[in-house]
Design a protein around this nucleic acid. Structure first.
Lengths: 115, 115
DNA sequence: GCCACGTGCAACCATGAGGTTGCAATCGCT
DNA sequence: AGCGATTGCAACCTCATGGTTGCACGTGGC
C-alpha cells in the first residue's frame, strides 16, 4: 500500500510524510510546543501539563521521535526529550516548495501530462 | 482572515489544523498532486488514476475542500475540482514560522546539540 | 423521449490511532 | 537495605477514518 517513492524532491518524501502525520495531531503539536518552550522535559512532566495520561504522552513522543521531531536522552533514571528542528525545517521547506509549485501553475487545461 | 502578522505563537490555528490533517494522508496528497498537475479534474477522472474507488476520492475531496485546499465548481453534469493555493500557502508560512521559532530557541539546557 | 454517464447519498465494514489501566523493573536517595 | 519516584511493557477499549458497494437522482446527448 505504499509505492516506493523515487527519492525525488517534489513530493512523497517518506521523512516529510512522517512529520506531517505527527503534526496532524493536536495533542502532539501541544507536546512539541511545550517541549520547544521548555527546551527539555520528561514524559512524566509533560503529562502533568496535558489532559492525557503519561502513557499517552510516551506514545506520542515515540511517534514524534520516529518522525525525527524530537529526541530523548537518558539522565539518570529519567529520559529527557528535546525538540529537533531539522526535520521540521525540512518539512517546512517541502511545504513551501509545494505551495510555490501551486502558485506557479495557474490552473489550466490538461496539457502537462501526468507522470 | 487570520494573517500571521507576528509569527502567531498561538500554535492552535484551526485552518492550519485542517490543512495538516488533510495533508497527513498519502492518498490525499496524491490527489492534490494530480489535481495540481492537471489544473482541473472530476472525482471520476481522478479515481481512474488512483487505486481507490470514486467514492473514496469524493470523500477525500470533501476533506480537502473543508481544509480549503481545493474547490469544486459545476460544469454541466460534472463537478470540476481545482487546487486552491491560499490555504497551503498559509500553512507553509505557519510551519516556517514554527521552524524559525525552534531554531531561535536552542534548548536552554546542558545539551547544545547532538548532531 | 430515452438512455447513458456522472454525481450524491447512505449503509456498512475493517483497521488503526489515541487513550487508559495495571504491573514489573529500575534507579536514586536516606 | 528499604522505599519512593520513574520508566517500560502489554492488554484492552473506543471511535474516527479510509474504503467499499448499491442505488437513486440529475443532466446531456441522440
Amino acid at each position: 500500500m505504499n509505492d516506493t517513492a523515487t527519492v525525488d524532491r517534489g513530493h512523497g518524501d517518506a521523512a516529510v510524510d512522517g512529520v506531517l502525520g505527527a503534526l496532524a495531531d493536536p495533542t502532539r503539536r501541544r507536546l512539541l510546543d511545550l517541549l520547544a518552550a521548555q527546551g527539555e522535559a520528561t514524559a512524566t512532566t509533560l503529562a502533568g501539563r496535558l489532559p492525557v495520561s503519561r502513557q499517552a504522552v510516551v506514545k506520542h513522543l515515540a511517534v514524534l521521535d520516529a518522525a525525527g521531531l524530537v529526541a530523548g536522552h537518558r539522565a539518570g533514571r529519567e529520559v529527557r526529550y528535546t525538540v529537533r528542528p531539522a526535520a521540521l525545517d525540512s518539512a517546512a521547506r517541502w511545504l513551501a516548495g509545494l505551495a510555490a509549485d501551486w502558485n506557479r501553475r495557474p490552473a489550466r487545461g490538461p496539457d502537462t501530462d501526468s507522470r
